[in-house]
């Protein structure tokens, strides 16, 4: 495993994403951040805190679990469900910014878009990810990217966060994988 985004770099990347989100949306009035559990949810809370300091007002932040909407459930062992919590203003006519740790095949994001559609109709949906590792299987792209990391498909990319893993880091396995 080698480290590709140590803690100080991760902090800078998140801070930049927070500024970009505010810039793109003319502030934070219209946005609702929704993190995809587990690590996307923590990242969404961090981004919300950063945006609050930039804009000086509270930001709508929540989580959205995509498990029940995935198209690859049958290929894996049964997965545990994670909480979905939609903040007070809902998503109707809001600009929803989905937040995840790694963008890979794009299937999680497709599932998240389906999950959103069942809750309401956002005015816009944007996507913020910490790592874009390529290998898309669907026509999905991120609006805000912490770092692009070219990878081989067999490699694994692991985002570590203090909330879940005790440290902030992004690690990538060697070419052979595992």
């Amino acid at each position: 495993m080698s480290s590709v985004l140590p803690a100080p770099d991760m902090a800078r990347a998140l801070s930049r994403i927070a500024h970009e989100i505010c810039e793109r949306n003319n502030g934070s009035q219209s946005i609702t951040l929704l993190g995809i559990p587990t690590r996307g949810a923590h990242l969404a809370r961090r981004l919300a805190a950063l945006i609050e300091t930039i804009e000086g007002q509270p930001v709508q932040v929540g989580t959205i679990d995509t498990t029940l909407f995935r198209d690859d459930l049958r290929m894996k062992a049964p997965r545990a469900l994670m909480p979905t919590s939609i903040p007070s203003l809902g998503i109707e006519n809001r600009t929803v910014v989905l937040v995840d740790d790694v963008l890979f095949s794009g299937r999680t994001i497709r599932a998240a878009l389906d999950a959103l559609g069942d809750i309401g109709r956002p005015a816009k949906v944007q996507l913020a990810v910490l790592i874009d590792r390529g290998h898309r299987e669907l026509p999905i792209r991120a609006d805000f990217v912490g770092k692009n990391i070219p990878t081989a498909i067999a490699q694994s990319v692991k985002v570590l966060l203090t909330e879940t893993d005790g440290i902030d880091d992004v690690q990538i396995s060697s070419e052979e994988g595992k």
């Binding site: 029940l68 459930l73 049958r74 290929m75 894996k76 062992a77 049964p78 997965r79 545990a80 469900l81």
Partner: peptide, 15 residues
């Protein structure tokens, strides 16, 4: 129904 039917129950959870 979700736990029995959605995933592939022949794979151990967490694998």
């Amino acid at each position: 129904l979700y736990l029995l039917l959605a995933g592939d129950t022949s794979i151990e959870a967490g694998a």
